[in-house]
Every structure is written in structure tokens, then in C-alpha cells.
Design a protein around this nucleic acid. Structure first.
Lengths: 182, 182
DNA sequence: AGCTAAAAGCTATTGATTTGCGTTTGGACA
DNA sequence: TGTCCAAACGCAAATCAATAGCTTTTAGCT
């Protein structure tokens, strides 16, 4: 991979942009490698060589979009912070586009790198919340405990049980975790 | 769908068998619809019409393979039963073929039917364990609690954090659940 | 036994994917 | 700064998966 500004970086950028634009314009199902390549001003063989196939390309784009763009809000206390974060996490992940990104990220990911990145994003956000609470002197659960008790159930149900989910479920998971450990 | 013995059933059977055989012979990555169709003694267009594409076909086969073939063993008590079941569940799901089946089941599943089926399989097994314990007079957690506290974390880590997992993790999840609720 | 709708076979055509080869690019080293 | 090299890209031919139209077979029903 070359430095920013190099040709490789330009190609990656224009191809990713083409995927985002075309997804919005023609829909995800109508995407093809030749279509994306044409929009990006690149030959299809370039895309095939760099990404392998459409799924791996979509996986890369999906991970980009799943990266949190803002730090968790500060509501003054661990419970409020964690509840608010869990609700926002749930809303983003359970929304139709969120579900699509999750699926894409998992789909074209032979070695699990992209999926691991998604998990790392969530862990980073939780770390911020927990560190802030610890700084206030609050007793805090382990990051891994939050992953097991909140993130994992949310993601499991989104993936395996698409029906009958709402943000209240995420709230209850946080409450269950905090009430048990406190 | 026709009755067993009908042509539809025969085609489905032979195509599924062809997928299983060819997966073992040439590997999953070398599978193509024309290849499977040839082995099954069927024309490719038949496969495309019934399953749409290779991913949906693989998803169907994967769900079949994820169906538990045996009831959870009876070890005389809830903790032993649940621990043993969780270990076996973990071993099956975390093994390389298990991971491949999970991915396939999620992958080619536009409406979430197959993923829901996988979840239902686990819930059924847990129901058996819990009902048996309740019959002994033991206090038992809710099935949904087991899904949230054991199944979800296991599946999440298999999908999103492929590294550094062992059966001890599943054991600890069961212990955490039972010790908290008891 | 004959009828009908669903499912499968067949084939031509499209278009995605692969592959080989020449060209360009960006970085390294003198 | 000029030259060299390897990686990445463009181009084009060839392959093969995917689609669509039409015909034939099959299984269930009266």
C-alpha cells in the first residue's frame, strides 16, 4: 500500500466513492464490478486484482461506514453513558442500512479482519465510556463484560432473529449488567 | 413443494448431496452452480430457478448441517447439563466447518429464515435442558436468558473475533449465568 | 384415463470474470 | 537530481457463469 496521495490511494478512494454513490443511485443489488469500475474511472481488472470480487469490496466499504464518527456522549454517569451508547449502537446496527453493512462486512471477509475491526470499534467506544466513569471514581465493569452482555446479544439478535427488536432491549441489557455487578 | 418421492424432492436431495460431496472433494471455493448441477444430474437453470444463486443453495445446505442430530445429554443436574451442552455447542460452532456453515447460513439468506432456524435449533436444545431441570424441581433461568448470556456471546465471538477462543469460554459463560441467578 | 399447473430440460445470448502482456507510476538509491 | 525497479494499472482476448425464451415432462386431481 502506498502513501496517501499515491496512485493506489487514489484508486481506492475513487472506487470506494463509486460504490457509495452507486449504492444510493441504483441500489445494492444492481451493483456489479464493471459498473463500479466505470464510475470510478478504472478498468474492471483493477478492481478484481485488488479486491478479488464484489463481496470483498463491499465488505471494505461497509467497515468504513461502521466506523463510529463521534465519541460517546457524556451524560454525567456510567449508567446514563452506557445506556445512551447502547441505544445509539442498537439504532445504528438494527436499522436496515446498518444490517446491510453488517452482513456485507461479514460476507466478503475470508480472514475475519473486517469483522474484527467492527468488534474493535465497539470495544474502543466502550473503553471511552468506562475510562470516563473510572475517572469519576465509579466502579466499572470490564470491557469484555460489556461486549458479552450488551454488544453480543444485540448483534446476535440482529443477525439471527431479525424480528421484534427495539431499543428497549438494549436498555434492559445494560440494566441487567449494571444491577448484577453493583 | 411436492411430497417426498416427488420429482422436486428428488432434485432437492440430489442437489444437496452434490453440494456435500463436491465440498469435500474440490473444496468450498471451487464450487460453482454448473459443477453442482452436473454432479446432481440436473441442468444449471434448474438450480438457478429454485435457489437463485450458489449462496442461497449453500445456505440451505448449511442449515441442514447445523441441525442438532441428538438431544442434549442428561448429566443429572442443570449445571452439568447446561455446561456440557454449551461445550458441545461451542466445539461444533467454533470448528472450521462449523464456522463455514454459520457464515454460509447467514450469507445466502435474504429474509433471515435460515438464520432464524439456526437460532431456533439452539433454543429447542436449551428448552429441553431447562425443562428437564424444572422437572427435577430445580430453579431454572429463562430460555431467553441462556440465549443472551451463552449462545449470543459464543456466536458473536466466533463471527467477529475468530482468535483465542476455547471451550473454557463457554463454560465460564454458563457459570456466570447460573451463579448470578442462583 | 385425461387435464392442468408446476417444475425441469434445452439452447442461445448476455455479461461478468479471468488472463496475458505492455505501460505507467511512485519510491529507492546512488 | 537522474536512473532503476517493482508494484500497480490499462487494455483486450478468451472463458465461463448467469439469464431468458421456449418446449417437454411430471405429479396431483377430477
Amino acid at each position: 500500500m502506498a502513501r496517501p496521495g499515491g496512485r493506489s490511494a487514489r484508486v481506492q478512494e475513487s472506487v470506494h466513492t463509486a460504490v457509495r454513490e452507486l449504492t444510493a443511485e441504483v441500489g445494492r443489488d444492481a451493483l456489479t464490478v464493471p459498473l463500479v469500475a466505470a464510475r470510478a474511472g478504472v478498468t474492471p481488472s483493477t478492481v478484481y486484482r485488488r479486491w478479488g470480487d464484489l463481496q470483498e469490496l463491499l465488505s471494505d466499504v461497509a467497515v468504513e461506514r461502521l466506523r463510529p464518527d463521534t465519541a460517546p456522549e457524556d451524560h454525567g454517569g456510567l449508567r446514563a453513558d452506557l445506556t445512551a451508547w447502547a441505544e445509539q449502537f442498537f439504532d445504528e446496527m438494527a436499522s436496515p442500512p446498518g444490517r446491510a453493512y453488517i452482513r456485507d462486512a461479514l460476507l466478503g471477509d475470508p480472514d475475519g479482519t473486517n469483522a474484527g475491526q467492527c468488534s474493535a470499534y465497539a470495544a474502543e467506544q466502550i473503553d471511552v465510556v468506562l475510562a470516563r466513569a473510572a475517572g469519576r471514581g465509579e466502579a466499572v465493569p470490564d470491557t469484555e463484560a460489556v461486549m458479552d452482555r450488551v454488544v453480543a446479544p444485540v448483534m446476535y439478535r440482529i443477525l439471527f432473529r431479525p424480528d421484534g427488536l427495539d431499543a428497549g432491549y438494549a436498555r434492559r441489557l445494560v440494566a441487567g449488567l449494571l444491577d448484577a455487578s453493583g
